[in-house]
Amino acid sequence: MSNTAILDRPSSTSPVRHLRAVTEPVGTIDAPDAPQPAATQDAPPAERHLPAGTAPRGFALYVGIDEAKAAASGVNLGVLVDALRRTLAELAPDAETYATVALAPVGSGGRDVDVVRLALHEPSAIARTKQDEPEDEDRAAGGVVVDISRKRVLIDGDSAAFTFKEFELLQYLVLREGRTIERTELVNSLWHGATEEESPGERTIDVHVRRLRAKLGRYEDIVRTVRGVGYRFDRHADVVIRYGHGTPSPDRF
């Protein structure tokens, strides 16, 4: 069974509600266990530190609520999505939206919002699920292990002689699985802070990728070329990714 489903619009019999538009600034909601800085009268607002070469293009709001809880509030998921879309259309008419429902096996436990984040492959949620997985070296016997926590790559059980920059390049692609990364982003991110003389040209990235693939041997196709754009890592049956404890979402800010 797929773990997501595109949400249909609410039926005509469902009550139509519209959320009140909030036009004043809304504070950031931190995680419950995150340390809160002491408030000072003259303290400047916190700055967002974006990865080099990136810019915000939208956001994802993970909502944890099942049909029973929604029904208890007199609504359903379709009504909630429709209300959010109407509010967004009022605040930002040019915004594009896409809604999907996270599906989980009946009777599965856990907080609704955590189930949603995991089902929709939110990077930091996936990373946390890896923390409790045993690191079985035998799983590397016939494939590739990209060990983020130990900064190493195992190929058919043997440690590959990757340079620091080659591992950084592979790790950057792995942590952004399924997303095509442009050469300019790789340069700006992996050589952030380098002088103009030290920073490589975009074509030099191609050389690094060729060397990386050569060391991957028969698994070289896990790093795919998107012609005219850049490179992408796709999930592969022969590849195991081991995340370190507390590995963050790579694009979180």
Rank of each mutant, 00 (worst) to 15 (best):
T4E: 05
P10D: 09
S11E: 13
S14E: 14
S14H: 10
H18E: 15
E24R: 13
P35T: 08
P35S: 09
Q36W: 01
A39Y: 14
T40R: 12
Q41V: 15
D42Y: 11
D42V: 06
A52H: 08
A60F: 05
L61C: 12
L61A: 14
V63S: 00
A70L: 14
A70S: 08
G74W: 00
L77S: 06
D82E: 13
T87M: 15
E90L: 12
A99W: 08
V101C: 11
V101H: 02
P105V: 09
G109N: 07
G109I: 08
D114V: 06
D114K: 01
R117D: 01
P123Y: 00
E133S: 07
D138L: 10
G142R: 14
G143V: 05
V146H: 02
D156Q: 11
G157T: 05
K165P: 00
E168G: 06
L170C: 04
Q171N: 12
V174D: 04
T180I: 13
E182P: 05
V187Y: 12
W191P: 01
H192D: 14
H192A: 10
H192R: 12
A194Y: 14
E198R: 13
T204P: 01
D206A: 11
H208G: 02
R211N: 09
L212R: 03
A214V: 03
L216S: 01
G217W: 10
R227P: 01
G230D: 03
Y231R: 01
R232Y: 03
F233G: 00
R242N: 04
G246I: 00
P250E: 07
F253I: 05
